[in-house]
Amino acid sequence: MPSIISINGLSKTYASGFQALKTINLDIKRGEIFALLGPNGAGKTTLIGIICGIVNASTGTVQVDGHDIIDDYRAARSLIGLVPQELTTDAFETVWDTVSFSRGLFGKPKNPAYIEKILKELSLWDKKDNKILTLSGGMKRRVLIAKALSHEPQVLFLDEPTAGVDVELRKDMWQVVRNLRDAGVTIILTTHYIEEAEDMADRIGVISKGEIILVENKVELMRKLGKKQLTLHLQKPLDAVPAELAAHKLELADNGNELVFTYDTSAERTGVTALLSDLARLEIRFRDLQTTQSSLEDIFIGLVHNSAGAAA
């Protein structure tokens, strides 16, 4: 798949002298949902700001669908919709006016039917004549999304779209995002709710201290780094792992009441069958068993910790 955004040698040093982005090289594929994860201050908003024209890059180039963001900014920007992290809205305009304004600003002729459709999808239709200042925080967030969608962008940036949005609305919001993806829109999102990235993303990039430390297909990532654990709740507690079972990666837990087996899901043989037959041979019986898989969150914390350790 050809990339819709290609970032080459991008860096950013703020006027204060702080280097927020080191050298960033990144390609976003057409039609994917790309989740950019990273701790506070990692440089996510800075990166998005440069691509969208809000922050000047110090070095490097960005192309959006082949258009340079500086030399050919008109073509590049008209493809992009941005939902900023901060809740920055007008106050005295109505929802309808502010969304229509955005469409005009991006050079599109009026299309009331389309705006009606977006407002309905985002459950804002009954608020269309309300002044923005009378809306709640979560509604303002949706107004920002409606503004970003008003000009039918090909690429949508969502900088923490679900911050301060309740569970139900969050679901609705992700449904809107899925519909957009189905319609061919490329989506780049940041979130601190890692389970959202796990749910939504096709690919995941991890940024830490201004560097992209990993970009990986989500499924691949989960498989590569995902460890699975099998926990056996024993009928009788053990004092130690029997010597006969030393070949398996086993640990005792819960005062010897649980036997925990860690294995790699991507391995050719997981060793579960061998373990179970060894247990049967030694007549170690168990009441119950359960498997758990490390979540993206565990993976993420592991990664950021390692890179912090390496940097220190």
Partner: peptide, 12 residues
């Protein structure tokens, strides 16, 4: 207010 972000990100 910060709404300038939209002007800066628009093809204008």
């Amino acid at each position: 207010t910060g709404t300038i972000y939209e002007l800066l990100s628009a093809p204008v």
